[in-house]
Simulated assay, not measured.
Amino acid sequence: MDKYEEFMALTSQTIGILKDMPKRSPYDMASDGMARKTAKSFTTLADALFGPTDSPRLQRESVALAEDRGLSLEYLEMVEKHAKKLQKRDVRLGRVVDGLRTISITDTQRRITDLEKTLDAAVENDNDRPRSEALLEPFWDLVESTGTGLIRPEYRTVIAIGLDDFAKVSCGKGEDVVVALSDGTTMTGAEFINAAMEGSLGDKLYVGLFHPTAGPVNLYEARFASDKLRTLAMAENLVCPWPDCNVPADRCQVHHIDAHKHGGYTKPSNLTMLCKYHNGVNDDDGPRKKRKRPSPGKPKRGRMRRHRGKVRLHTPGGKLVENTHHVSSMGAMDLI
């Protein structure tokens, strides 16, 4: 058998390879020389085929069929891609990119077409702009005129700003200051002041104290995180700190870095924000004890760890990886 034949034989063993993927992190595989995109493809498929599921019987049948036919990684990726297109009706909100976000609505053809005709009626005589641009304002006019319109709540969202920048903004000299928020967005110094003047920041200003290496400083301890502790954790990590995650802290859960069941205290330095998914796959046991066998349907992906004051993912291979999301690098610990 020559090398090509060996390669083709290996591609037919994808299911066997994927069975071993849950015990590895894509970041460890990337450090071994595998392209990160390929590594993520492996772990995504491993999750779909061997991770938690609401349909274990269908999952078992899919694995058996793929193994019986010797399907390659590329083939399985294609199946997964087309399966995702069979979406239920939903509304999807994209991540922030250069100050812009995308909303996608999937519903019945009748409802979407009725919406399209409603918007078209408002731009019948607007031939100077592309149709997609001309529909934008009528869309927002329709949203804001329906019922109560858009909700504009006070900022319970956490705003992380350094002391020097706060002094500039307070004096009206912070035109170039950009601060980050725990809803995954950013705000200019001018917008910050305008929000304060309009009363959108509420009637109280909370100040969090952070140590360069210990992280948030507070002596309060309880089993469940108080509003004060949650606010400190959000100010430190404005988005979920798991690498490549873009879920804003506003929609995250408070997570004990050292698990409470192992004696981890509910104090600022032991808390962080994790999205629901990564809070679920985080390995709370970590290196503390060796399991006799892996927990069924719960892949080992590594665990969160505080290193030199900042929260990082400690991969199963021993590497510390940070989230590179642009808002993630603007939290309280990055301002000191």
Rank of each mutant, 00 (worst) to 15 (best):
L10Y: 11
T146N: 11
R92W: 09
A46T: 01
G264P: 04
D107H: 07
D183Q: 00
D227T: 15
H278W: 00
H256C: 09
F42T: 02
T106F: 07
L163T: 07
D98A: 13
G202A: 09
T11R: 12
A249M: 14
S226L: 06
Q13S: 08
E116T: 09
V91E: 05
H260Y: 15
G331N: 01
T324I: 11
N194G: 06
D285E: 11
G51N: 05
Y265G: 06
A222Q: 10
T157Y: 03
R223M: 12
H82P: 01
N270R: 04
M8I: 08
D183I: 07
Q59N: 04
V217F: 03
P153W: 15
T14P: 01
E80D: 15
G208P: 06
L335K: 10
L86H: 14
D183M: 13
L271K: 03
K84F: 07
F224E: 13
R223W: 10
E77Q: 13
V207S: 04
G202E: 11
K117H: 12
T102H: 09
G94Y: 00
M234T: 00
T43E: 07
A196M: 05
A9S: 10
D68A: 12
R251S: 10
P316T: 05
R89D: 13
T113R: 14
I257W: 05
S182P: 02
D285A: 03
G189L: 04
I17A: 15
L136F: 10
R223G: 15
R251Q: 12
L119T: 07
A9F: 05
R251E: 07
R312D: 00
Y75N: 10
L163D: 15
E116G: 10
G149F: 09
C240S: 06
I17R: 00
M234I: 02
L238F: 08
K40D: 08
T108G: 15
K204G: 00
